[in-house]
Nucleic acid binder design. Structure first.
Length: 426
RNA sequence: GUGAACGUAGCUCAGUCGGUAGAGUUCAGGAUUGUGACUCCUGUGGUCGCGGGUUCGAUCCCCGUCGUUCACCCCA
């Protein structure tokens, strides 16, 4: 034990028992994304550090203290991506995807942030995200939100609520920020808030400290500072959501942690995961492409935390179980192993859908049967010297279903076996 | 980064007011010389997270460290 190497802190193995949840979630989301005409993109996991510093914001926590940054052999500073949007934007610019075109992109994969691990928060965690480039109008905001709502509905997840806000234009946000800082500086703030006054004053509005609530109540409201265009954008979005019957709650204190957001921001939250309740979040970042060096291109996107969604799925247990083999092959007697191998390869040729598990590693006949039972297989195949000499197989039902009234063990030739199995409903 | 609780067999846990550990389960074998699920028997499996201190003696007490969990912070 003392010399064993453990996984690095905050990085977990996703074990076979969990895989059905992951597959189910990934498949469901991917099909929906495709039904909205999104196309997958897979940028590298590593980028130049500067990319994240410039997009996420120099003074954010992510960039200041949470990135896995290291020097490449040539001295370049590289970083394991802490989020997906920056890479997508970079890839889009580099490959000329945004030249007066509308692009709907999606990605999935691991992200890395050096945070203290906690429920729903890991140092390597998985996100699925989507982004749309080239659309200024709020129709796309509404479509994106409708699509995310469809995710939860399709996955059978309840109790996820939508919070919505508008940050206005970059200029409006700046004006508001000044007003807010001005107001807050005249009041006594707790330690965290004092720190945030410099870095991200809008965050102070989100403080959980009860002592801060009265100060927060009296603070100027962001929505009052919205420029006209942003206001109209927001109004249209709200009416579109109403037309789609999508419930939402305006949260004037909803600010995203990343600097690049403007106008629409939204968050899907649950109260069932402890303090990490945000399951999906996103918004507009109309200035980002230009900021990274591309031609000015409006954009909107979101990302969701897969571990958090899986945790919800597990609570509801709305998932198929692990894929058991259909047949477990047991063997006794001389030369029956090669007979078993030949039959199993023959069957895999004839019936590619079939899941076969060979008993490997020996063991008494009894223990082979125990393994067959444990494997969850529908059938045990028995291959002994008798069967081999007659070029047959024994097939025994291990489980009772409507289909298996015949509980008798069958003895079949190879061809009969293929016929029998091809008509069997699993 | 801050705080709290916890680290005993592959898994779930008990235990020793300080005298180097036990159950269930898993796995292997047997009762049933080629037939699982129930039952019974036997066996494998632990430097009690790691390092140091106190002590005749530490898994237990103390300190440190690593890890886990939860909360703060931050965020998906």
């Amino acid at each position: 034990m003392s010399k064993t190497i453990q996984a690095v802190r905050g990085m977990k193995d996703i074990l076979p028992a969990q895989m059905p949840y992951w597959h189910h979630l990934e498949d469901t989301i991917r099909h929906i994304l495709e039904s909205y005409a999104y196309q997958e993109i897979r940028p590298p996991l590593v980028e130049k550090t500067e990319l994240f510093a410039r997009s996420i914001g120099e003074v954010t926590d992510i960039v200041e203290k949470e990135m896995y940054t290291f020097a490449d052999r040539n001295g370049d500073s590289l970083t394991l991506r802490p989020e997906g949007t920056a890479s997508c934007v970079r890839a889009g610019i580099e490959n000329g995807l945004f030249q007066k075109q509308i692009h709907r992109l999606w990605y999935k994969g691991p992200m890395f942030r050096h945070e203290r691990p906690q429920k729903g928060r890991y140092r390597q965690f998985y996100q699925i995200g989507a982004e749309v480039y080239g659309v200024t109008t709020p129709d796309i905001d509404a479509e994106i939100i409708a699509m995310t709502a469809r995710f939860w509905q399709q996955l059978g997840l309840k109790n996820i609520v939508l919070q919505l806000n508008s940050l206005g234009s970059i200029e409006a946000r700046k004006t508001y920020r000044e007003a807010l800082v001005n107001y807050l500086s005249q009041h006594s703030l707790d330690e965290d808030s004092q720190r945030r006054l410099q870095s991200n004053p809008l965050r102070i509005l989100d403080s959980k400290n009860p002592d801060m609530q009265t100060v927060i109540q009296g603070a100027p409201v962001l929505l009052d500072y919205l420029d006209e265009v942003s206001q109209a954008h927001f109004e249209t979005l709200k009416s579109l959501l109403a037309a789609l019957d999508i419930d939402y709650k305006i949260n004037p204190r909803l600010v995203r942690g990343l600097d690049y957001y403007n106008r629409t921001v939204f968050e899907w939250m649950t109260t069932e995961l402890g303090s990490q309740g945000t399951v999906c979040a996103g918004g507009r970042y109309d200035g980002l492409v230009e900021q990274i060096g591309g031609r000015a291109t409006p954009a909107i996107g979101f990302a969701m935390g897969i571990e958090r969604l899986i945790a919800l799925l597990e609570q509801y247990q709305k998932t198929p179980s692990v894929q058991n083999p259909h047949i477990y092959i047991t063997m006794v007697g001389d030369n029956t192993i090669s007979y078993g191998l030949r039959i199993s390869e023959f069957l895999r040729n004839a019936l590619p859908q079939l899941r076969l598990e060979m008993n490997c590693g020996g063991g008494s006949f009894k223990s082979q049967f125990k393994r067959a039972d444990k494997s969850g297989a529908q059938f045990a195949m028995i291959l002994g010297e008798d069967e081999m000499n007659k070029q047959q197989v024994g097939l025994k039902f291990l489980r009772q279903t409507e289909q298996t009234q015949t509980k008798e063990q069958l003895n079949l030739s190879w061809d009969e076996l293929v016929n029998y199995l091809s008509e069997f409903q699993y």
